[in-house]
Write a protein that binds this DNA or RNA. Structure first.
Lengths: 341, 341
DNA sequence: CTGTTAGCGCCTTCAA
DNA sequence: TTGAAGGCGCTAACAG
């Protein structure tokens, strides 16, 4: 039988209240008493029943997700997943809410973080922008004792407790390797379409991609990176232009979100030989393009897993519990038309 | 404030006990009373607090995993993951245990299933063998009201509540697509090494692989399937032989477990041009072979995810709760040397 | 058939 | 500094 507070109270010769004080590190216990209790805890191998504790506290975990109000499919899907979690949240003693901020706007993100701290939630998840002031704001959240995790895009040197998202360098490397192999290893020209080189995940993907190409497929020439700002119209124009200027293009790597424009352009331009296309994020658009052969491979991060992982991690941090690292590693899904879920 | 049993008792004008009876479908409640209570439940939007209920019941979920005592890395890893879950299980009000059975032995599996039923656990997970007597045994478990899930290898027409594992046809298709693309689409000869055509997952992988090759890469010729019974020595001999007999082999698809033998053979045989190799399951052996270029791609199912998913599903079934389908879908991981975790 | 009462393991007033 | 008592939401005897 698992020991309970009663057992350790009896074993230490004190009352339940005292045990509770020690357990929760509350003041008002003599040093000797505390040690006696801690001895009993260690001896009996007591572990607190979190469910019972939460019941007694009638605790609900308040978690806040700060999401950019981007209109690309991935961010919308991420929001949907959070809303799905909200729907289930009352069953789990959680109160999850969403705060939207304008995209690519560090000042707005900082303001949101500072506002959120005032409400003292049990945890915060947010999509990071990589600037010093955001870093400082994260530091303030952490200093307030509120668990905070980055989502999708990280801020490595900051005080965040955890990063929920894929390894973007590995993702870029994988794209590079697939591109090189699919193109057969000869000489060829490859175009890269990004959202913005100001966000870390895009920079890292490019870095990984370029590294693999340089090391393993020296025959591939990478054209200057296009920045489509995840905007369909702009991306479409850029892709049309680059295909016109470089009819020899054999491959395209789209490492950002907002692939609608890319797909439109590919459908419009008539190429003698279709280019090999690798993109990120499985959305309605990329899925259709994969199915009909416009896109050859899609690297994906599962937004549902990310949201659930973020919640699990925040809850664990809030309870002072360890996280199962293997469970929380977000994997890079590779989809071909043959393994579409 | 979320309504509690007290609220619905008051609203329906009955006692807690009666509410409890209705909630748990226990007998001894008049029809009218029951309906009154159900009305109140619906009206107030009551949802039972499972944590509190479990506390009151001091319930612990007893789950049994029936695992084949195979000595390949994948099955050993699966066992390790279950043991990891056991280590954490007491915290979660669970008592997980493992029953080992001889591999590829339907009669032993049936005996194990029938024995396990007698202990009336809260749920059973097992690696299926696809025979009628196993199917019948599963039927008996289900008839006893015990939730049961298949793990890794399914038994589709049986009475199992859920299958925890990858879509093996899609996995085979993916392997076929990668093989075709990596080989550049021309004429070539491909060998296939399986464990046994008696287990369903291997059959399905072959089916998916062959289909894609036939439809999309007609230039590829598939040699007769080798059955290595997941035995390193046998697999090694078979691969050595086939490479000797068919020096023109350009690709090998290893769709079973036990890749040690394959890797050994590949390292021994000196080929003028290295064959493209695609295998299943990321283990210490395949990981090393991937890293050093002996294997080109590994399709993997994450044993840790599978075990955790099986437990979540069994718990949900035991509580009569729905499962989050998206969360429980086991994905086909594709690893190249560039995205090794 | 229905209600009363005493917990499950823990936390939290309120007294002492 | 410590303890007694009541309660979180639900279940389970045991009476009526």
């Amino acid at each position: 039988m698992k020991p309970t507070v009663h057992d350790i109270a009896r074993s230490a010769g004190v009352s339940l209240a005292t045990v509770d004080r020690v357990l929760n590190g509350r003041p008002g216990v003599r040093r000797v008493t505390r040690q006696r209790v801690e001895g009993a805890i260690a001896e009996l191998g007591y572990v607190r029943d979190v469910a019972a504790a939460n019941l007694a506290k009638s605790r609900t975990y308040a978690f806040t997700f700060i999401l950019p109000a981007n209109d690309n499919s991935f961010m919308i899907g991420l929001g949907d997943e959070v809303r799905g979690a909200i729907a289930r949240s009352s069953l789990e003693r959680m109160a999850v809410r969403i705060v939207n901020v304008p995209p690519f706007d560090p000042a707005a993100l900082v303001a949101a973080l500072d506002t959120v701290v005032l409400e003292r939630p049990a945890g915060v998840a947010f999509v990071a922008i990589d600037t010093p002031d955001v870093r400082a704001a994260v530091q303030r959240v952490a200093a307030a004792g509120i668990p905070i995790v980055t989502l999708v895009s990280d801020l490595p040197e900051a005080a965040r407790d955890h990063y929920v998202g894929i390894d973007n360098i590995a993702a870029g490397r994988t794209a590079g390797s697939l591109m090189g192999r699919f193109l057969g290893g000869g000489d060829a020209t490859v175009a890269v379409l990004s959202g913005s080189m100001l966000v870390r995940d895009h920079r890292e993907r490019l870095e990984g991609f370029a590294t693999v190409v340089r090391e393993q497929f020296p025959g591939l020439a990478i054209l200057p990176v296009l920045e489509g700002r995840d905007d369909p119209a702009l991306a479409e124009a850029l892709v049309m232009q680059v295909l016109e200027d470089n009819p020899q293009i054999a491959g395209i790597y789209s490492l950002g979100a907002g692939n609608r424009g890319l797909i439109q352009a590919l459908r419009k331009v008539s190429m003698t030989r279709r280019a090999m296309v690798i993109a990120h994020e499985l959305t309605a658009y990329t899925r259709a393009a994969l199915a009909d052969g416009t896109i050859d491979a899609v690297l994906n991060q599962d937004a549902g897993h990310e949201v659930r992982s973020a919640i699990r991690v925040l809850k664990a941090k809030a309870d002072g519990l360890p996280v199962i690292a293997a469970q929380e590693r977000i994997r890079i899904d590779i989809f071909l038309k043959d393994n579409l879920p």
